[in-house]
Design a protein around this nucleic acid. Sequence first.
DNA 1: CATATGATTCGATTATTCTAGAAATATGGA
DNA 2: TCCATATTTCTAGAATAATCGAATCATATG
Lengths: 125, 125
Amino acid sequence: MEINEALAALRALAQPTRLALYRLLVPAGPTGMAVGELAEQLSVPHSTLSAHLGVLRAAGLVLDTREGRSIRCRADFGRMDALLAYLSENCCAGHGACAPLRTCSTLFPPGAAARAPLPRVRQRR
Amino acid sequence: MEINEALAALRALAQPTRLALYRLLVPAGPTGMAVGELAEQLSVPHSTLSAHLGVLRAAGLVLDTREGRSIRCRADFGRMDALLAYLSENCCAGHGACAPLRTCSTLFPPGAAARAPLPRVRQRR
DNA sequence: CATATGATTCGATTATTCTAGAAATATGGA
DNA sequence: TCCATATTTCTAGAATAATCGAATCATATG
């Protein structure tokens, strides 16, 4: 990861609604949640939520798939892993003593959602 | 860690100068760097740097100690660990399958600087 | 095609953050 | 004490971000 990607990810998470939004998606795993479901749980107007979601998407932290009229969002754990690694880079004065960071991105690799027991859908855009 | 602490830490890191500042402190380890040294390396006016440093300190990411006329700053790795853990909390839909996150805070516990400073990381001038 | 539903874009407004010069504070030494 | 060095605080203008209603777009279905 390079600095501008890290900054985009940090800026995206550094806002109450967006952090709550992201943290709602974390336990939802590769199944994710629909946009309307998120707006309802967070009690935020749709236009406001949509703007926040746009920031998270632009930062690469959230991916989505259209399912009929609704859009299902999920956290991109690989991207979060990259951010966590970036934040600890060159730690230990380069002695290489830090254990590698790991999250469930290993357990739910990209594509897991498509293979999961969910209706077949196509990518947006 | 609770949400407001996480937000403060994320806001603190979500700014180019402050992220660069923090990343300068990471390889410096428990020895840290003086404020003036940081300002010089970042080519930022002292008042601007001081303001940014204040944000990082308020977020608990940077600790400092006065040494005569100068103030020596160092990254608080424990705080960063807590932030990283917060960002992956409830991952894996609560299956507890995520490996625990770990950084060198275990290797350099609080107080390490005073007792046993490591050899200084080479700095560019 | 007409209509309903889910989501985004467009605006204007309000709020927050960044920046850096000048002044102030803290420490050490002659 | 007086002076030099290191850092912070104060200030205010400039830049950026958040908010949300109304309009618009995309899709499904009768």
